[in-house]
Amino acid sequence: MKKKTSFSTKGQRADIGDLTIYRILANRYTDAVGPFVFLDHIIPKAHSSSSANSGTGAHPHRGIATLSYIIEGEDEHFDSAGNYAKVYSGGIQWMKAGNGIIHDETLNVDSQTKSNRTHAFQFWINLPSKNKAEKPAYLAIQSNEVPNKTLPNNSGWIKIIVGNYQDLKSVIPNYSEQFLYHIQLEAGKNFTIAIEEKVEVAAFLPTKNAILNGIEFQAGEFVEFDRIAGEITFENNLPEATDIILFGGEPYTEPIVAEGPFVMNSESEIADAYRDFYAGKYGKIDNKIGRV
Score class of each variant (00 low, 15 high):
Ser6Gly: 04
Ser8Trp: 10
Asp18Pro: 01
Ala32Pro: 03
His41Trp: 13
Ser50Ala: 15
Ser51Tyr: 15
Ser51Cys: 12
Thr56Met: 15
Ala58Val: 09
His61Asn: 11
Ala65Phe: 01
Thr66His: 02
Tyr69Met: 02
Ile70Gly: 00
Asp75Trp: 10
Ala85Val: 05
Ala85Asn: 13
Lys86Asn: 15
Lys86Asp: 14
Gly90Thr: 14
Gly91Asp: 13
Gly91Ile: 13
Trp94Phe: 14
Trp94Arg: 09
Met95Tyr: 13
Asn99Thr: 08
Gly100Tyr: 08
His103Lys: 07
Asp104Leu: 07
Glu105Phe: 02
Asp110Asn: 14
Thr113Phe: 01
Lys114Asn: 12
Thr118Gln: 00
Ile125Arg: 03
Leu127Ser: 12
Ala140Cys: 07
Ile141Ser: 05
Ser143Gly: 07
Asn148Lys: 13
Asn153Glu: 03
Trp157His: 08
Ile158Ala: 06
Ile158Pro: 06
Lys159Asn: 07
Gly163Gln: 06
Asn164Tyr: 12
Tyr165Arg: 08
Gln166Lys: 15
Leu168Pro: 01
Ile183Tyr: 03
Phe191Glu: 01
Ile195Gly: 01
Glu197Ala: 10
Val201Arg: 09
Leu212Pro: 01
Asn213Phe: 06
Gly214His: 05
Ala219Val: 05
Gly230Phe: 02
Ile232Trp: 00
Ile232Arg: 02
Thr233Asp: 04
Leu238Thr: 08
Asp243Cys: 05
Glu250Ala: 13
Tyr252Cys: 05
Thr253Phe: 04
Ala258Ile: 15
Ser268Thr: 15
Ala271Phe: 06
Ala273Arg: 03
Tyr274Gly: 04
Phe277Leu: 05
Phe277Glu: 02
Gly280Ser: 09
Gly280Ile: 06
Lys288Ala: 15
Ile289His: 12
Ile289Cys: 06
Arg291Pro: 13
Arg291Tyr: 15
Val292Thr: 15
